[in-house]
Design a protein around this nucleic acid. Structure first.
Lengths: 354, 354
DNA sequence: CGCGATCTGTATAACGTTATAAAGCGATCG
DNA sequence: CGATCGCTTTATAACGTTATACAGATCGCG
């Protein structure tokens, strides 16, 4: 059925090895034979059988990106960037879900799929450094996101501490004094919100504001529903907050919805700021002020570092890479010189690091 | 490095063929040897090499789902469902993008990736029936979505005509008389909005309302920005609409944003209804009334039909499958007995077909 | 002119599976 | 008692590539 190397070889009157060399360019081939072979390839419409190639080479040309869920547009946008980056480099990217489930994360890290993939980009939620440090699989891996730090793998993540501080500075500059944090997680193994939470606390201290434990809300997950629930809890307090710093945009959007249902205005009564800069926040009512990580670069960098390892390029010891982020000021927490209504997103202030 | 069939065979003192039979169960194996082999497998931690298996078998166990983009949460949710369905059946699902680009759609349909995938689920935007009818690739394919009808392939899609009529009936029942449609596409090869547009026109006629061409707005794409732009065009009319039926939720949400920027209230001044039921619409302000297709079933059905073809199960001639949908009434176009503010989604009216 | 070096091309052996044909071996049967 | 059958197991040949070792030319250089 499918046309194989052998068919081409016969047609062009050369050996299979020569055809292979024309296709892959491993060894030089004479101009005359090359064109003869090329013609045969064109005529018969040959494409190499990947299973066979990969069986022989020991690589599949497929890398996986494991994310908690696709429903969070942040991950959808990240996956988008990663897929494009992989495609450009001649690889195919496979999406894997973990459902934010610890066991599934372990499974993925431990080489489920190992037979089919050359490498793995893992965006974990529940895994600790020890979990990944003790993994047995030999498959190259790159970490992405906030969950794990200081593990013996390349790690691509924005400077969450700096990002949180910047978000908080913005709220404080707006004159807010009772600022809440939605999206903390108590589990011992979770650094992510720890870091963002720490940035929150540090910024409060730097501004001479008190840290009120009631204003830190723990959530189950990271969705709009979690944000709404968290906000409702805050509104039940005797003294509700006048601003909210959310772990991510989805939580922020859920919080805005809950505020709306309570008859409170954003930003007049309560300012809200998130992290992620998902497209939704550019059209929501009000539009969402947020920290915008360079998702394109995160995806690209993760793929690049992974391929360096896979293809055995000199890459040095595992390192942490920090793509830039920037504060995008929109309606939910407007610029300090109090503006009022519409007008589209205007960005300000950008900070980055290597 | 990796442990292979040969290692197991040696360890258990049997032939490779026997090990293969234990793993695959093609031929019976004696109880004694079976357990000996199984033990060796467990001890050495053997997993079959997929490239080799598939080289031999001629199948890869991978199917692809080609969608225009991941940024539209509708497709993200659909992909989610399809991935789960494929996983359940022992297949791996690969996501492919077409960027809503006609050439890329053709490329995908014509068997780019053919070497790596056993089958394809295609959600096209620009392809016509003739495009797919004349494709050369032998790879089994199932169509999903509104673009192509009556092609010689299984096709999974909701009854768009009925869905549109139902959405329109709801708006008309609310007393709206100048109802606009955002998201029409003029290209000759596009049936999708044609069908929804036709439902729109038919519903107008059925209600004895005039069809005003000014109220049908063509858009470039299907995103929030397109919806906002379309709405602005409508608001520039001498006599703006009092309701909007949007091609999908994203367009609807963009329209709501544009209305807000114009100082108009939804639903009091203008009612808005979409199609897709993306999660975002359950938290937007106002929450979005929409037609909710059963995405779970669309994904599951598409995978199922594709696997039937791949695995050679008797499946009869290509057919069209219509998963159910239902109208979900929320704030942007509330129930007829005029309610006012918050309260969560309440569904009504469901219709389905085979 | 002869010998090594280069440059092209070929034959062949893997890679890890699974399908096919055949072999071993009791037991059954005519 | 020899032939036949059924059951389990094995040996072997693919599947379509690429890597390795090698064989002929052609060429440069002493």
């Amino acid at each position: 059925m499918a046309v194989s190397l052998k068919d081409i070889a016969r047609r062009a009157g050369v050996s299979q090895a020569t055809v292979s060399n024309v296709v892959n360019g491993y060894r030089p081939v004479g101009e005359a034979t090359r064109s003869r072979v090329q013609q045969a390839i064109d005529e018969l419409g040959y494409t190499p059988n990947l299973s066979a190639r990969h069986l022989r080479r020991g690589r599949t040309g497929i890398i996986a990106l494991a994310i908690p869920e696709l429903n969070n547009p942040y991950f959808a946008e990240l996956a988008d960037a990663a897929i494009r980056a992989a495609t450009e480099r001649g690889y195919t990217l496979l999406l894997d879900y973990t459902d934010g489930d610890r066991d599934k994360e372990l499974l993925v890290a431990d080489g489920f799929r190992a037979q089919i993939i050359d490498g793995l980009i893992l965006s974990a939620v529940h895994l600790s450094r020890d979990d990944v440090a003790s993994r047995t699989s030999q498959t190259p891996m790159v970490l992405v996101g906030e969950a794990i730090y200081h593990a013996p793998y390349d790690h691509v993540v924005i400077d969450n501490l700096a990002a949180s501080r910047e978000a908080m500075r913005h709220l404080i500059a707006l004159g807010r004094r009772r600022i809440a944090f939605i999206g903390a997680h108590i589990e011992a193994d979770r650094a992510p919100s720890l870091l963002r939470l720490r940035g929150y606390a540090e910024a409060l201290e730097a501004a001479g504001l008190p840290f009120d434990p009631d204003l830190t809300v723990t959530t189950e997950g990271f969705g709009r529903g979690d944000g709404a629930a968290g906000m409702r809890a805050l509104l039940a307090l005797p003294e509700p907050p006048d601003a909210v710093f959310a772990f991510n945009d989805l939580i922020a959007l859920g919080a805005i919805r809950a505020l709306h249902e309570h008859g409170l205005r954003v930003p007049e009564d309560v300012c809200v700021i998130g992290i992620d800069d998902v497209e939704e926040g550019r059209f929501s009512i009000p539009t969402l002020t947020t920290i915008s990580p360079d998702k394109e670069m995160i995806g690209r960098l993760a793929v690049e570092k992974l391929l360096d390892r896979i293809e055995g390029r000199p890459a040095g010891p595992p390192a942490e890479f920090q793509p830039p982020f920037r504060l995008v000021v929109r309606e939910s927490a407007p610029a300090a010189q109090a503006q009022s209504s519409s007008s589209s997103s205007s960005s300000s202030d950008s900070s980055s690091s290597s």
